[in-house]
Structure formats: C-alpha cells, structure tokens
Simulated scan of single mutants.
Amino acid sequence: MPKMKTKSGAKKRFSLTATGKVKYTQSGKRHGMIKRTTKQIREHRGTAILFKTDGDNVKKYFLPNG
C-alpha cells in the first residue's frame, strides 16, 4: 500500500501547534484595504487558532504527519 500524503493545500494554509491545535493566517489583508476600518486591519493581524471542531476536520488532511 502506498504512503499516505499530506494535502498540499492544507500544508500551505495551516500549521499545528505543539499541543495539537490548528493555527491559520487570517484572511482579508491582500487588497481593498482602503474600505476597511483600522480596527478591522488591526484585528486581522498575525495568526489565529481554529475552533476545535474545525481543527479536527483539518487534521484529517495532516493525518500521516500530524
């Protein structure tokens, strides 16, 4: 049986923390920033943690390596 592969789209978008939570980069920062408030821009800075149920779905894509 061949090796199971990680979904390449998932490895580009998500990463796992040491405790097993799923971390992702926040969306909405590429273009059209002039119509967003400074509060929106500030709150979408950096990374965030997915909710547990969503993270469980994403972990299925990381199955061989996560």
Rank of each mutant, 00 (worst) to 15 (best):
M1D: 11
M1G: 15
M1P: 10
P2V: 12
K3Q: 13
K3S: 09
K3L: 13
M4K: 15
M4Q: 14
K5E: 11
T6L: 12
T6K: 07
T6I: 15
K7M: 10
S8E: 13
S8M: 08
G9A: 11
G9S: 14
G9D: 11
A10P: 05
K11Q: 12
K12A: 14
R13I: 04
F14M: 06
S15M: 05
S15I: 02
L16S: 03
L16Q: 05
L16I: 15
L16A: 04
T17A: 14
A18S: 09
G20C: 06
G20N: 07
K21N: 01
K21G: 03
V22S: 01
K23C: 02
K23F: 01
K23P: 01
Y24L: 00
Y24W: 01
Y24H: 03
Q26G: 02
Q26M: 04
G28Y: 04
K29V: 02
R30M: 07
H31W: 04
M33G: 07
M33H: 03
I34M: 08
I34S: 11
I34G: 05
K35W: 04
R36V: 01
R36H: 09
R36P: 00
T37F: 03
T37V: 02
T38D: 10
T38E: 11
K39W: 07
K39H: 06
K39Q: 12
K39V: 11
Q40P: 00
Q40A: 11
R42I: 01
E43P: 00
H44T: 06
H44E: 03
R45E: 06
G46P: 00
G46L: 02
T47V: 10
T47Q: 12
T47H: 06
A48N: 07
A48C: 07
A48G: 08
I49H: 12
L50C: 09
L50A: 13
L50I: 04
L50D: 06
F51C: 08
F51T: 11
K52E: 15
K52V: 15
T53W: 09
D54Q: 14
D54H: 13
D54C: 02
G55M: 07
N57Y: 06
N57T: 07
N57D: 08
N57H: 10
V58P: 06
V58Q: 07
K59M: 12
K59N: 13
K60H: 10
K60M: 15
K60T: 14
K60V: 15
Y61C: 15
Y61T: 14
F62H: 04
F62T: 10
L63A: 15
L63R: 15
P64E: 05
P64M: 09
P64F: 08
N65P: 08
N65F: 15
G66K: 13
G66M: 07
